[in-house]
């Protein structure tokens, strides 16, 4: 019988991270598919609260590594804790949440256990008795379905795909493991979290709407003028009023980085597609993005998509957006701001 292990660190307040809940949800799905045993491994300063609030009774056993050294997000200590749990659990499938912290850790741990790893998994299925997982390659442009014979198989799931369990929690019997905190684990010290400079928060992962600004905002407008300052005002006002998250195309971000300073608040962290992120939002509104990445890869995980573009034949919106408004984004967004302001 297969044994599935979910591994995750806890948040600094001792709760289970949202992404870990999703991983647990995924693992429960998989447990049913494989008729497997499910266990959980958690590390952090104090993990009991998380173990007591799993939202499911499907977990049969637990493992924990506790201590101050395991509180912070640090590869060496995270990998050591995760390794200890995995060695003890002896699971053949290890499910991990989609977080920066765990994604940094699992490939190394899998390697230590002579296992294999796959990240950003969006689907499980059983084909001819084998577990087949799906993931996107080439920046969300090609979907691949793959299986592996080697175990343990570490699988990091893509966020937003699986639902965290919401049922009654049954606390599994949990084994505490000790990990030697030697110098090698603490060569790195975590100093804190830095938030981006600037008055306006432009990246809001939890926002319902992703507003994507394309390079058209800083190009010559039909009257032959570049209106970057006006563009900046319109965009910032919209973000403020709508509380949406700002995404941008690579070309617009590059312009900023090369000193053109067209939209002063735009940084590479705003970029979607290409070397940027592929964020998850319910809605996406792309503006002035003719032929640019948002339509292609950057908003693969955006559910409802609308576009404002001057070209009715924009082939890169066709088939990829739900609605294409043929209009001047400057005019429309100014009006949108006005209406939002009035409300």
């Amino acid at each position: 019988m297969s044994k599935i292990l979910v591994v995750t660190p806890v948040e600094s307040d001792g709760t289970l991270p949202q992404a870990a809940g999703e991983a647990l949800g995924a693992a429960i799905t998989l447990k049913e598919m494989l008729e497997a045993e499910l266990c959980i491994g958690i590390w952090g300063q104090d993990v009991d609260m998380a173990i007591e609030n799993l939202g499911t009774d499907a977990v049969s056993s637990g493992f924990k590594v506790e201590g101050e050294a395991f509180t912070v997000s640090r590869y060496a200590s995270d990998a050591a804790a995760c390794e200890a749990i995995c060695r003890q659990a002896k699971a053949d499938i290890v499910i991990t949440p989609d977080s920066v912290r765990t994604n940094r850790t699992i490939a190394g741990v899998a390697f230590r256990l002579n296992g294999v790893s796959d990240t950003h998994i969006t689907e499980f299925k059983i084909e001819n008795g084998d577990l087949v997982v799906s993931r996107w390659h080439y920046r969300q442009r090609i979907l691949a379905h793959l299986k592996r014979s080697q175990r343990p198989w570490f699988i990091s799931i893509e966020s937003g795909v699986f639902i965290p369990p919401q049922g009654d929690s049954k606390v599994p019997s949990t084994e505490a493991l000790s990990v030697d905190v030697n110098d090698a684990l603490t060569r790195t010290t975590v100093k804190g979290i830095e938030t981006p400079a600037g008055d306006e928060q432009t990246i809001r992962p939890d926002a319902e709407l992703l507003f994507v600004a394309g390079a058209g905002w800083t190009k010559k407008q039909p009257d032959g003028e570049v209106k970057a300052a006006q563009a900046a005002d319109i965009i910032l006002e919209f973000l403020k009023e709508s509380k949406s998250s700002l995404g941008s195309t690579k070309s617009l971000v590059d312009l900023s980085s090369e000193g053109a300073a067209v939209l002063p608040f735009m940084t590479q962290l705003n970029q979607v597609g290409q070397t940027g992120s592929t964020p998850r939002h319910d809605k996406g509104l792309a503006t002035c993005c003719h032929g640019e990445e948002p339509h292609v890869v950057g908003w693969r995980f955006v559910n409802e998509r609308r576009v404002i573009n001057l070209d009715p034949n924009c082939g890169w919106a066709h088939g990829k957006a739900d609605v294409l408004y043929v209009a001047d984004a400057f005019t429309v967004m100014q009006k949108v701001n006005e209406l939002l302001g009035n409300q």
């Binding site: 070209d311 034949n313 082939g315």
Partner: peptide, 9 residues
């Protein structure tokens, strides 16, 4: 068959 601008892409 696509617009001239789309052919550029």
């Amino acid at each position: 068959f696509m617009s001239h601008q789309d052919a550029l892409l």
